[in-house]
Amino acid sequence: MASESGHLDLEVLEELKDVMEDEFVELLTTYLSDAEVKVAGLKSALAENHHENLRNFSHSFKGSSGNLGIQLLAELCAQVEALAKDERSSDAGAYIDEIDAEFQLVAVEMQKIIAQQ
């Protein structure tokens, strides 16, 4: 497995591949489709200034990203989660934009890995 970029932690993915065996690809595609739902959810919660939804989406996205070793996304989600918890959702706009951009890059790299399997 090879990747020139720093958006994925290849070591973690290697371990996951050992654990998941033939379900590794399914794990990655599930992550990608799930992540799209989460990013969309983050955006609409921000638009509605809905603290609870924002907190739930960011917490969940943080967890699934962390488990796949996608550290930067996980950290950005943690920032959003903290703001939502403090009911400062309106301050989270910049972070959510960054999450959106970062996810696009992660998705591209992940598609490459999927193609290699």
Binding site: V19, M20, E23, L27, T30, D34, S60, G63, N67, L68
Partner: peptide, 13 residues
């Protein structure tokens, strides 16, 4: 777990 990916990983383990 509410995360599909987390459940998958846990299930597999």
């Amino acid at each position: 777990d509410d995360n599909a990916t987390d459940r998958m990983i846990l299930r597999k383990i």
